[in-house]
Structure formats: C-alpha cells, structure tokens
C-alpha cells in the first residue's frame, strides 16, 4: 500500500478592477474570455479550453511546457450566483497523478464604480509534498493575467 497523505491549506487573493462586476464576471462565464487569461505560463502549449458554465457543469484545460509533462485542470461548478459568486471544485493532475483538489470561491463585490474580487482557495495536497507557496504564486500570476486581459478588453 502506498503511503497516503492529505494536507489541507487555505489562501486568498484579491484584486480590484475599475469596471462593473458584470464585466468581470463575464471573464469567467464566457469561454473565449476565460481562455484568454486562465492557463499556465505563456510558453506552455495548451489544449482547447472547455467550459460548461452552469451548476454541475464542467470545465477543463490541459497544457505543459514543450516536451514536458502535461498538466490537467478539471473542475465542476458547484454554485453560481450571476455577477456575485462562483464556487468551483477542481483538481490538478500532472500526467496521471492527482496532485491537489481544491474548492475555489470567487466573490465579486461592488466597489464604488468598480469591482473588488476576492478569491478564497481551500486546497488539499494529496500524497505530494505541500507546495502552498508555489500554488499561491501561480494563482497570483493568473489574476495578474485577468487584470491585463480586462484592461485590454475595456
């Protein structure tokens, strides 16, 4: 029997946007918008982004460095309140190995004329050593992509 472990952790990321929250929300609900900002580093090769944006609907994308291992992202929408909140359960696999499962809560809050986005991730590291700092850094980079993509679109 393999030695199993499961290590939970929680982290949050916040960003503010100078645009209304329906516009920020669309960066999640529209597959073309989401594919623009959600993925690995720029030099990675990526598969098509699949998104079924409704409660119970799935989302997936894969990618990896040229010639390197494939990273697979796969999620299920657990709760959606349009323009206000999205709760997603998702996993990350590298090759066939599941590294983490997570519950991600994204809250869109009106902030004057703009939007404050609060993302809370409750993550579980499976067997793999905990790599919370790496994951936080990767998530911060994703939200930087989101800020850039929305600045370009609006």
């Amino acid at each position: 029997m393999t030695k199993r472990s499961a290590t939970p952790a929680t982290f949050t990321v916040e960003r503010t946007f100078p645009i209304s929250r329906d516009k920020v929300f669309r960066a999640y609900s529209d597959v073309k918008m989401k594919a623009k900002w959600f993925g690995g580093p720029e030099e990675w090769e990526r598969s098509e982004h699949k998104l079924d944006f409704r409660v119970g609907g799935r989302e997936s994308s894969s990618g990896g460095p040229p010639g390197g291992p494939q990273h697979h992202y796969s999620g299920i929408h657990m709760d959606i309140v349009p323009d206000e909140r999205i709760v997603l359960a998702y996993e990350i696999k590298v090759g066939e190995t599941r590294l983490t499962v997570s519950l991600g809560t994204t809250e869109f809050k009106a902030d004057g004329k703009g939007t404050k986005l609060v993302y809370t991730e409750q993550i579980m590291f499976l067997d793999a050593p905990e790599h919370l700092e790496d994951r936080k850094k990767g998530t911060e980079a994703l939200f930087d992509n989101l800020v850039a993509a929305l600045a370009k679109a609006h």
Binding site: A6, D79, V101, L103, L126
Partner: peptide, 21 residues
Amino acid sequence: RFVYGYRMTSRDVPISVSLTT
C-alpha cells in the same frame, strides 16, 4: 481514500459547498 465535493440546499436555497477528504 476518497474525495468528494457536495453542495447543500435548504428549500432550494444553497447553504454550503464542501470538499471532503
């Protein structure tokens, strides 16, 4: 080991989402 996510509603109003290991 098994891991599951679940949403709970009360009278059709969502009250929680969990990730259980």
